[in-house]
């Protein structure tokens, strides 16, 4: 499945890559349509849908009222009955209003009905801090949904992956929740033209290393890679794994890496306690990799606080490159 027809590549932003994926999907399959608040002429709060309404019309790029619960439920109902809706939450925080439809309906309908239906809905969640939008527009609640069987939850970190994984999500017969860090929208990267998919449920080793495994999600992949570069100058050789999917989690890639490096650090923006890193740590503790560990596992996650407004406070809330460098150095040199 992976990158079947990769042709020429060119540089696109993460937001452009999403838009291109949605356009390709709509061209390929008339069942695909977009729903969300102000995704039409406005182009979406982050200009991800942009001018798609001009190409595809208001029937396929549907502005919804400000009704997150109802809108998400309409997408679920359309998916169950044969359409392929892509529902955009304006901010991932607003999805808290729609938890009923996501958690009780979309995730469980196939199971409750003994396999009689499937729910091929895609929901997009612009998430994360760093925009000065404060506590109700900056959260990273992907672990909430990662806790729910029946959902698939992905966090692509690059323009290449977000296009391929979104196309995979649209093809997927089950509900896929895609968490997009808002600071990634403007990030540029090489993106193949045309149709290709990047599989859901496969982590990617972004940098090979021998001394320490860092498993990072979303924007933290880039911070971890920056940290790894700095650490290389100190002869600390870091392996960076981009988790890409938090449910279903690619356990084997992490286990194999930890068996090799004997050290594990998890870096994620969501609140540290009960977050994605807790699951990775526990999974390693239960696995054959546990015997290989030379040091305790380290988690770097979000602070136990709402996201504050002040830029310095906001930065201090989530892991930064300096913090990753220091924690990794301490872990490898046994200073902790």
């Amino acid at each position: 499945m992976d990158a079947q027809v990769e042709t020429a590549t060119r540089e696109l932003s993460y937001a452009q890559a999403i838009q291109e994926a949605m356009a390709i999907a709509m061209e390929r399959d008339e069942r695909v349509f977009l729903m969300g608040e102000d995704i039409g002429v406005y182009g979406g709060a982050f200009q991800v849908t942009g001018d798609l309404v001009e190409r595809f019309g208001t029937d396929r790029v549907m502005d919804t009222p400000i009704s997150e619960l109802g809108g998400a439920g309409v997408a679920v109902g359309a998916a169950v009955t044969g359409m392929r809706p892509i529902f955009e939450f304006q901010f991932s925080d607003f999805a808290t209003l729609a938890m009923e439809q996501i958690v009780n309906q979309a995730a469980k309908m196939r199971y409750m009905l003994g396999g009689a239906v499937s729910v091929p809905v895609v929901m997009r969640f612009p998430a994360g801090s760093g925009t000065g939008a404060a506590a109700q527009h900056s959260q990273s609640l992907e672990a909430w949904l990662g806790h729910v069987p029946g959902l698939k939850v992905i966090q692509p970190a690059t323009p290449h992956d977000v296009k391929g994984m979104l196309l995979a999500a649209i093809e997927d017969p089950d509900p896929v929740m895609i968490y997009e860090h808002k600071l990634l929208y403007k990030m540029k990267g090489e993106v193949p033209e045309g149709y290709y998919t990047v599989p859901i449920g496969k982590a990617e080793v972004r940098r090979e290393g021998a001394d320490l495994t860092i498993v990072a999600t979303s924007i933290m992949v880039h911070k971890a890679l920056d940290a790894a570069k700095q650490l290389a100058e100190e002869d600390i050789d870091v392996e960076v794994i981009d988790l890409r999917t938090i449910r279903p989690m690619d356990r084997q890639t992490i286990i194999d890496s930890v068996c090799k490096t004997s050290r594990l650090m998890c870096v994620y923006e969501g609140v540290k306690t009960l977050g994605v890193g807790a699951e990775i740590s526990a999974m390693i503790a239960e696995s054959e990799a546990f015997d290989y560990l030379d040091a305790p596992v380290v988690r770097l996650g979000g602070a136990e606080t709402p996201i504050p407004y002040n830029p310095e406070l906001e930065k201090a809330t989530v892991p930064q490159v300096d913090g990753i460098v220091k924690a990794a150095r301490d872990l490898v040199t046994g200073a902790r």
């Binding site: 809108g71 998400a72 439920g73 309409v74 109902g77 359309a78 169950v80 809706p85 439809q101 009780n104």
Partner: peptide
Amino acid sequence: LGANGIVGGGLPIAVGAALT
């Protein structure tokens, strides 16, 4: 399309089915 354990759960789903 199913009974529902959540009061009001079927309402948006029905609207989605009608959209289809």
